[in-house]
Simulated scan of single mutants.
Amino acid sequence: MSTPIRRQRIVLASTIALACASWILLNAAIIALSRGFLPFDRPALMRMPFAWQIAMPSLGLIEQLALMGLVAALCRGRSVAPREALIPERATALREAGAVLAYAMLAQGLGWWLAPLLGSRPFSFHLAGTLVGCSVPPTPHEALVWAAYNGVVYAVLPGLWFVRRYGAAGLWLRFDAGGRDLRVLVSVLMVEAAVQIAAMPAILQTPPALWLKAGPVALVLYGVGTVLPTMITVYAILVPRYWRITGSRAAATILGGLTYAALHLIEGWSNFDSPRDAVLSLLFVMLSYTGPGMFKSYVTLRTGNAWVHALGYHAVAPHVLFDTPLVARIFAIS
């Protein structure tokens, strides 16, 4: 076995071992701190037993790993070398990734400070009430300001900067001509939607007329507020550069997952009433969003197309499926 291949296998094994150990320690820390109760504002889950609430992220991770297997099978024998070649060389990638990470963290801090001045809760990558509900739903003003801030700060500004420098192809924002990207997108969307409906059949209780009226609003609101910002900042810009910097798809996948979680540090359900609750909130964000962020990274790296995760594993499932009733409530759609 050649030395480069041996080195790659050592890096892969070490990365996976470190990730598994970190996941176990993260769960252990949350269980120890929570003392049998998670102090979060999540009305949709309030009746769920504590053990199930703790297990949900790990069960989700199992499904995400299975989806990675599906993507690997669909991409077998496929090379993304032409798209990989568009990533800048390592020194440039390192400099750009550092600058974008600093920019994103500053934007998070600005959003936490600015939002209350605009009559909103601190901005995160999710609108308050997303997926799990909240005791005080957002107002139309809050929802629109949240979407506008995230759309401009995380999608429009970095997108324009990097598209001018590298073009849409250089940001992995083009579909392949043979339809392989579309096949992966549709397959992932169908499986993920089926899993979510099976896990939460209450989704189907929404009247069809309300889906027709509020569903498109949810698609646009979340598309501007979280789908496009996530796609541009994390998956079109950062994840390809992580791959160039580390030389490892596994390491880039994990780094993408951690970055995705870091952009959700303050969620609508977070509780900062005490130091213990604050630490629990931050740890649970990492537990809840690292897995989905890793899958988004993986499918992006295997296809060389940032749109695949955005449309197949974000815009419709979960946000239209789960959040259409919330959007209907916010905008009084009936």
Results as ranks from 00 to 15, higher is better:
residue 208 P to I: 10
residue 186 V to F: 08
residue 197 I to V: 15
residue 209 A to P: 00
residue 197 I to F: 10
residue 201 P to I: 02
residue 218 A to W: 06
residue 225 G to W: 05
residue 223 G to H: 06
residue 194 A to G: 12
residue 204 L to K: 04
residue 199 A to Q: 15
residue 207 P to M: 09
residue 219 L to H: 07
residue 192 E to S: 15
residue 189 L to D: 10
residue 198 A to N: 02
residue 193 A to V: 00
residue 225 G to F: 09
residue 187 S to A: 15
residue 223 G to F: 03
residue 204 L to G: 02
residue 188 V to M: 00
residue 188 V to A: 06
residue 185 L to V: 08
residue 198 A to E: 09
residue 195 V to W: 13
residue 217 V to D: 04
residue 204 L to D: 00
residue 190 M to E: 10
residue 221 L to V: 01
residue 187 S to W: 02
residue 198 A to M: 11
residue 187 S to K: 01
residue 225 G to Y: 11
residue 195 V to H: 12
residue 188 V to E: 01
residue 215 G to P: 10
residue 201 P to V: 00
residue 202 A to D: 15
residue 207 P to R: 10
residue 220 V to P: 02
residue 185 L to G: 06
residue 186 V to D: 07
residue 211 W to N: 01
residue 185 L to I: 09
residue 203 I to Y: 07
residue 191 V to K: 09
residue 212 L to N: 02
residue 219 L to M: 13
residue 187 S to Y: 04
residue 210 L to Y: 02
residue 196 Q to C: 11
residue 190 M to T: 15
residue 197 I to S: 02
residue 185 L to T: 10
residue 191 V to D: 06
residue 199 A to D: 11
residue 207 P to V: 11
residue 212 L to V: 10
residue 208 P to N: 10
residue 187 S to I: 03
residue 193 A to L: 05
residue 202 A to R: 12
residue 190 M to C: 14
residue 201 P to A: 03
residue 208 P to E: 00
residue 198 A to S: 13
residue 224 V to Y: 07
residue 191 V to N: 06
residue 191 V to G: 09
residue 215 G to Q: 08
residue 200 M to G: 03
residue 204 L to F: 07
residue 223 G to L: 08
residue 193 A to M: 09
residue 221 L to I: 00
residue 220 V to S: 02
residue 223 G to A: 04
residue 223 G to I: 04
residue 203 I to L: 15
residue 203 I to K: 09
residue 206 T to E: 08
residue 212 L to H: 05
residue 191 V to R: 01
residue 206 T to N: 06
residue 190 M to R: 08
residue 199 A to S: 15
residue 223 G to M: 10
residue 197 I to G: 01
residue 200 M to I: 15
residue 205 Q to R: 11
residue 200 M to P: 00
residue 211 W to L: 02
residue 186 V to L: 13
residue 214 A to K: 05
residue 216 P to S: 09
residue 198 A to L: 13
residue 185 L to F: 08
residue 219 L to S: 05
residue 217 V to N: 07
residue 217 V to P: 03
residue 210 L to A: 10
residue 199 A to C: 13
residue 211 W to Q: 01
residue 202 A to G: 14
residue 199 A to Y: 14
residue 217 V to A: 13
residue 204 L to Q: 03
residue 203 I to V: 10
residue 224 V to A: 12
residue 189 L to Y: 10
residue 185 L to W: 05
residue 194 A to T: 12
residue 213 K to Q: 12
residue 216 P to H: 10
residue 212 L to C: 03
residue 213 K to M: 13
residue 220 V to A: 11
residue 215 G to S: 06
residue 205 Q to Y: 05
residue 203 I to G: 01
residue 218 A to Q: 04
residue 206 T to R: 04
residue 210 L to F: 04
residue 192 E to Q: 14
residue 209 A to L: 06
residue 190 M to H: 03
residue 225 G to P: 11
residue 202 A to S: 14
residue 222 Y to E: 01
residue 196 Q to E: 11
residue 189 L to S: 09
residue 221 L to E: 00
residue 205 Q to S: 14
residue 188 V to P: 00
residue 206 T to W: 03
residue 213 K to F: 05
residue 224 V to K: 05
residue 215 G to D: 11
residue 210 L to G: 07
residue 209 A to S: 12
residue 218 A to E: 08
residue 214 A to C: 08
residue 201 P to F: 09
residue 217 V to C: 12
residue 202 A to K: 13
residue 215 G to T: 10
residue 203 I to P: 05
residue 225 G to D: 09
residue 187 S to L: 02
residue 225 G to E: 06
residue 189 L to E: 07
residue 209 A to G: 14
residue 221 L to Y: 00
residue 218 A to S: 14
residue 197 I to M: 04
residue 209 A to H: 08
residue 220 V to E: 01
